[in-house]
Amino acid sequence: MNKILFFAHLRDAVGEEFLCLDASGKTVAQLKAELSEKYDLPRMDTVMTAINEEFASNDEVIQDGDEIAFIPPVSGG
C-alpha cells in the first residue's frame, strides 16, 4: 500500500489530507494522471512529486510502501 499526501489547493480539491491506495509498479506520471482525472485536480503540470520526502521525477516507479506527496508550487518565506 502507499500513502498519498496532498497539500494546499490539492488538499482542498481531494477533500482529504491523504489517501491510502496501491500504486506500486506505477510511475509517478501514471499516478498523477489517474488522480488528476478522478478528482479533477487543477494545474497538475505545475505540481512536483516527492517519494519518501525527496523530489522524484515523473518517470520514477513507485514501490510498495513508498510515501508519495504531491507538492504544488511552494510559497513559504
Binding site: H9, R43, D45, T46, V47, M48, E54, F55, A56, P73
Partner: peptide, 21 residues
C-alpha cells in the same frame, strides 16, 4: 492558496531542476 504567483513555473519533469536536488 498562493503558489508561484504568476503561475509561470511549470515542472515538466515533475521535480525541480538538477541544481535543486
Amino acid at each position: 492558496w498562493v503558489g508561484n504567483q504568476l503561475e509561470t513555473k511549470a515542472y515538466p519533469s515533475g521535480k525541480p531542476e538538477e541544481g535543486d536536488l
